[in-house]
Design a protein around this nucleic acid. Structure first.
Lengths: 147, 147
DNA sequence: TATTTATTTGCAAATTTGTTGCAATTTTAT
DNA sequence: ATAAAATTGCAACAAATTTGCAAATAAATA
């Protein structure tokens, strides 16, 4: 489906000195298809084709190589392809249905990050803004918008 | 040490219909003393004075009552007293030493959140910005500032 | 392409993290 | 001080994550 992504995956693996295996391709495919998902979702989707231990090892490797990033959702986390594949973005999570809405408009955030990092004499490597609330359709049911 | 905080704790518990026990006071004290810490750190600090199951129950209660908030640090989480005690703030985490620096200057962030929420027709309940990088002293050693 | 070498996988067992039921203890209300 | 209600500790359980190692697969070489 997405030639460029697969090429990027394979090059990244090879450059790091790792092999391209069918299990690694599978995990990548699942991430490409379903975007932010929990470890157990990823595991369920791969059942029969991949062992749990290997899944954890592959995710750890992908993380080290910057192929995957862990997205904190409250105190749990989900996995998604890194900015390398998707472009940098932030997220809004619906507290009711769990839907994750990606947000791209981060111009002012970037400025904010830069100035904060400077002020605290920190070299910022990455940042992530997480907003939690109720999405349009969930709000209509139980949480009539009062603001 | 901090009379007001303890009073606030006790009132919050009582108002919710819960008792003030020495275990709950202990957990609160530890949170007051060491700020953002992982569950296992909290547990280790309380060993001999508190059972693991009770610790989890107390944290769950504190969370329900808004006394404590879970702070996602990458894909793990740490616990800290809620905004009710500390005021709303964000964090910078050092990728080397793990130090957590609280940041308070969130004027532009708040504006950003509001406009984003409006655009996506989401009612935002809470938000958290997490910056990861290298703090001043860690950077000086291994990561000379190039920017 | 066949073979050798190096890497990766699956499996089983271990560890770590979080949860639950219930009797004993502590707190609160009387 | 006592009774009633809430909370704790304990032990067992369940879920999430990690590890060692032999078997299988991918990469390198001939």
């Amino acid at each position: 489906m997405n030639y460029d992504s697969y090429e990027l995956l394979e090059n990244t693996l090879r450059l790091g000195g790792y092999s391209v295996t069918k299990q690694r391709r599978l995990v990548f495919e699942l991430l490409l298809k379903h975007e932010p998902q929990a470890m157990h979702e990823l595991y369920e989707r791969s059942i029969g084709r991949l062992d749990r231990a290997s899944l954890y090892r592959i995710i750890a490797l992908f993380e080290r190589l910057g192929i995957v990033q862990k997205l904190s959702m409250g105190w749990k986390y989900k996995l998604e392809l890194s900015d390398m594949f998707t472009g940098h973005h932030h997220h809004i999570t619906c507290l009711k249905c769990g839907r994750v809405i990606p947000i791209k408009e981060d111009l002012s955030i970037e400025r904010f990050i830069t100035s904060i990092a400077q002020k605290h004499r920190v070299s910022a490597v990455k940042h992530q803004l997480e907003i939690q609330g109720y999405c349009n359709s969930c709000r209509e049911h139980d949480h009539p918008l009062t603001v």
